[in-house]
Design a protein around this nucleic acid. Structure first.
Lengths: 193, 193
DNA sequence: CTAGTTCTTGACTATACAGTCAAAAACAAG
DNA sequence: CTTGTTTTTGACTGTATAGTCAAGAACTAG
């Protein structure tokens, strides 16, 4: 019927995600994007509407592929406090081992744009709530086997743990050192038994 | 000897700080700056060298004037756990009450630039250490009167408290709601007696 | 007043920006 | 093969960008 699309849309989106992740929204030019995606302006605007729409899609793609991986240890059937500790141990390793210190694309996006761009703010809120739910499930397991105090409101603790992730990731931008970040995590998780 | 500068350098710097704070580094144009500062390009480049140098100076200015205010409750002679709680209560109020949700200029700058711009990274590191020291002094006071467990390493707790600030401020970008942020703080400070 | 120095002004430069468009090319249906 | 549809391409548009510069203005020392 018509000429088929030649490039792999998903691969192009992933390439755009990487560029936005490294450089931020404003600092990324459409030329940067086209070069990384291997396509020309016509194809870009035909397939992704415009820079802003592409950015939002890249952000969603990040959340689905990279962002949600952090919570993977919590997905096991009986994940409890150990799984939570694992999440933060992985987090610290991830932050320290990346030589570019890109951090979390979603958090970068939130701080760059959320105060002006409600679409970004909503994606950030969504991501926060997903993280909170993931922690909540693990906290329920932990409490049921007595691994955490009864006097804590688990929803609040879950929200706190998400914000602890933010705190560690922010701290890593200024001081990406393993011992420093581990100490923060150690104190931050001392509310769990 | 020569023609005197007509504009108030400090006022101009404060104006630049506000613009950078609201919009970020990359999203702020030199025209935005000149308009806010009330000066023409020649004056700007004569007095502040270039956009990047002006940004760094604005960031330092922020830290001296606005940024360090957060720790004011800790500066009283016998500031202890109550002062620490005060810091976070003020923080939450500040985040919620600003209709623009600008957050912390230093944290915004850190997430936007620290991974590429070492001068910004160093300012962020400096600010982190100052915050850590401020908390440390208060924690010492708190421990001496038995208001905090002996088994904690106070330097680590101080680093944690700074990262708790980052966490709350980041969380506020996505969800600037008083109850939500207060709950995070409540859990986060439950490590103190 | 004069000479020397620095500041102000606004026009200016060269480049980079996001996005458009016409023409050609690649397909499928008939 | 023809027709209709969509993609690709690269040249193109108008605007915004960071920063420069020459000319004049404001000042002080002598």
């Amino acid at each position: 019927m018509a000429r088929p699309i030649e490039f792999d849309r998903t691969k192009a989106l992933d390439a755009a995600m990487q560029v936005f992740w490294c450089q931020g929204y404003t600092a990324t030019s459409t030329q940067d994007l086209m070069q990384a995606m291997g396509i020309k302006p016509g194809s870009l605007y035909n397939a992704f509407r415009d820079k802003h729409t592409l950015y939002l899609e890249a952000l969603e793609r990040y959340q689905e592929t990279v962002g949600s991986c952090v919570f993977e240890p919590l997905m096991k059937p009986n994940a409890g406090s150990e799984a939570i500790k694992q999440v933060f141990a992985d987090l610290v390793n991830q932050e320290v081992s990346d030589p570019q210190h890109r951090g979390c694309f979603m958090l970068n996006a939130t701080l760059e744009l959320a105060s002006h761009d409600n679409a970004v703010r909503e994606l950030a809120e969504q991501a926060q709530k997903r993280g909170q739910n993931a922690f909540y499930a693990a906290l329920l397991n932990a409490q049921s086997i007595g691994a955490i105090d009864q006097h804590h409101d688990l929803e609040q603790v879950a929200a706190y743990l998400v914000s602890l992730i933010y705190g560690v990731r922010s701290a890593a931008k200024a001081r990406p050192e393993h011992t420093y970040l581990s100490q923060i995590v150690h104190v931050g998780l001392s509310i769990l038994k």
